[in-house]
């Protein structure tokens, strides 16, 4: 899907040669410490940021030329994104349903709200929602058009455990019933272990591990992904050259 992505911001290389593949129906986690390049990578995949080098192809449509066609097949939501102001939930969802070309938009809105058990919010104003409710509506928006790829950036940040569970359950149901592939970032390692079949670890803009959660944990001689995360964050902070070497080793073995 993405090959050799490179992105520079002034004096910093935010993304340094990342390759990412997500197969049909696959649930993939994109992990890494703050500043690892996760969000920049997602923004490049969504066409909101253009890479210095590399290519991106989504469902046969290459960016940037095929952006509109590619985005027809992608849904995106992030925990930090607000809903448009002065719109009811149903109006917000209808607008996006139409932008994505959904024909039976009313039925799709109802199905989406039911999937995440928030049908009662349909007539609420966006500004009246709690952060958890806003997140759920954002995910409904991202799935209205039955995307082939669902991209979520920190979807459960600041959510109560029960709402986070509802999100995970809904996402798993969506991926299984509609064959949607999922690419998700999160700082909640337990969530990623429970939800994802494969994890891509980023550090300093490079892929340093790409495997099943358990395989990555054993590769780093750790009990779980949190141990791996802490280990990599520590290396990055204390020994940047070791982190760099680790990234190069992964590059060569890939």
């Amino acid at each position: 899907m993405a090959r050799g992505l490179v992105k520079d911001y002034k004096r910093t290389r935010a993304v340094d040669g990342i390759d990412i593949d997500v197969l049909k129906g696959e649930r993939v986690g994109l992990l890494g410490p703050n500043g690892a390049g996760k969000t920049t990578t997602l923004m490049m995949l969504l066409g909101a940021i253009s890479p210095e080098q590399g290519s991106i192809e989504i469902c046969g449509h290459r960016l940037p030329g095929g952006r509109s066609e590619a985005m027809q097949r992608v849904g995106f939501s992030a925990g930090y994104m607000p809903l448009a102001e002065r719109l009811k939930v149903s109006e917000f969802l209808r607008m996006y349903g139409e932008l994505y070309g959904v024909v039976d938009v009313e039925a799709r809105i109802e199905t989406g709200l039911e999937r995440f058990r928030i049908l009662q919010l349909s007539e609420a104003m966006g500004t009246q929602l709690s952060s958890g409710q806003r997140t759920l509506v954002g995910i409904v928006k991202a799935t209205l058009h039955r995307p082939r790829l669902l991209v979520l950036d920190e979807p459960t940040a600041s959510l109560d455990p029960d709402v986070a569970l509802r999100v995970r359950t809904g996402l798993r149901d969506l991926c299984q019933s509609e064959g949607t592939a999922l690419l998700i970032t999160s700082h909640n390692m337990v969530e990623i272990e429970r939800l994802c079949e494969r994890v891509i670890f980023l550090s300093r803009g490079r892929v340093i591990a790409n495997d099943a959660p358990r395989a990555i944990a054993s590769q780093f001689e750790s009990d779980d992904l949190e141990g791996v995360f802490l280990h990599l964050a520590q290396i990055g902070a204390d020994q940047p050259e070791r982190a760099e070497r680790r990234a190069q080793e992964t590059d060569h073995s890939a």
């Binding site: 066409g47 909101a48 509109s68 992030a78 607000p82 448009a84 932008l99």
Partner: peptide
């Protein structure tokens, strides 16, 4: 309005040209 309500990213990642 899209920038004030931080809705620009939502719009930019849709198929809208």
């Amino acid at each position: 309005e899209e920038t004030w309500s931080r809705n620009l990213l939502n719009i930019m990642i849709t198929p809208v040209k």
